[in-house]
């Protein structure tokens, strides 16, 4: 991720010659964040790192066991299952969700009637996303006698219980995640609106049509926001918990087919009272997400355009 910052630094070296003394200002602007980092965030994070090297059942004091928890992870077949489930979930649902969000944002960005209402309606599923009601609703839609199968029956296809079949349950979770595209959509919308109008005006004067304007202005100017959404949705998808918890009834079923990593971690920590192991799992996840994010930042040098 250093590349992003370096890029800024290098492109603007001349302008920043005058501003050598920013350190002090930075300390001022970052003061609340530093306070939060060291007083609120760092302690619990460090504690969880320590706990990952202990046998900790929450009820009695933790006992140091060295790398035991990490070693156990390699021998845990369910952990492997949960990694497979999670990777499938992340790499299928994130691109689909972002594509849906971007497409809708582009359509809704144009001045048209009822825009505010459409935007709000499309955002609604995101408001409902983690509600307990979703469990029942999803059964009603994707169940053996659900809405989807009723529609399929009209065209002569006999469906199955999508939400409860081990081969399909994960797909319904992916659909659920795509369906809650409201958050990235809103960010895209805000991003589209932030593109200075003067660029389009200048392009029009130069005779560029709407399609050229889209590719040469909208797309590059939006890349920082696309990048942001990608990084954040990846991080979020890897940590998704609530939807899988609600839809599977809390256990990642049927037959572990929706056992997302964080769901497994939660069950280990709180249901099985194995918080030491859960902490180790969390730090392993941090390594995965961190690695993924680093790759993202490194790659961003080639496609993300900053105007500053």
């Amino acid at each position: 991720m250093s590349s992003v910052i370096q890029e800024v630094a290098s492109t603007r070296r001349a302008a920043s010659e005058r501003r050598k003394g920013d350190g002090r200002m930075a300390a001022l602007f970052l003061a609340p964040w530093f306070a939060g980092l060291f007083l609120i965030t760092a302690g619990p994070m460090a504690a969880s790192l320590y706990l990952s090297f202990t046998d900790y059942d929450l009820l009695t004091a933790p006992a140091w066991v060295g790398f035991d928890n990490y070693v156990r992870m390699f021998e845990d077949p369910r952990l492997l299952t949960s990694l497979q489930v999670t990777f499938t979930y992340v790499f299928v649902s994130v691109p689909l969700q972002l594509a849906a969000a971007l497409a809708l944002a582009l359509v809704l960005d144009k001045g048209m009637r009822g825009l505010a209402l459409y935007r709000s309606v499309y955002y609604l599923p995101s408001l409902l996303g983690g509600s307990v009601a979703i469990a029942i609703l999803w059964r009603q839609i994707f169940g053996a006698d659900g809405l989807v199968n009723q529609v399929l029956a009209l065209v002569g296809i006999e469906g199955t219980g999508w939400v409860s079949h081990p081969d399909h349950a994960l797909n319904t979770l992916i659909i659920l995640n795509v369906w809650t595209f409201g958050a990235p959509m809103v960010i895209f919308l805000a991003g589209l609106r932030q593109i200075p109008r003067m660029y389009y005006e200048a392009a029009s004067i130069d005779g560029a049509g709407p399609i050229r304007q889209f590719w040469s202005i909208t797309v590059p100017m939006l890349t920082p926001i696309v990048f942001f959404n990608l990084v954040l949705q990846l991080i979020n998808a890897f940590q998704n918990f609530t939807q899988a918890f609600v839809v599977s009834g809390g256990n990642g079923g049927p037959a572990d087919s929706t056992l997302l990593y964080t769901l497994y971690l939660y069950r280990k920590g709180f249901a099985d009272l194995d918080m030491g192991y859960a902490s180790a799992m969390a730090w392993f996840l941090l390594l995965i997400i961190g690695g993924m994010t680093l790759v993202n930042f490194l790659a961003s040098k080639y496609w993300v355009h900053y105007d500053d």
Binding site: G43, P44, M45, A47, S48, L51, L58, I235, Q239, F241, T262, L265, Y266, G269, F270, M275, A278, S279, A282, W283, L285, L286, I289, G290, T293
Partner: peptide, 10 residues
């Protein structure tokens, strides 16, 4: 990047 579930107890 750390899941809330392991942070919440500390």
């Amino acid at each position: 990047m750390l899941p809330i579930h392991v942070i919440i107890v500390p």
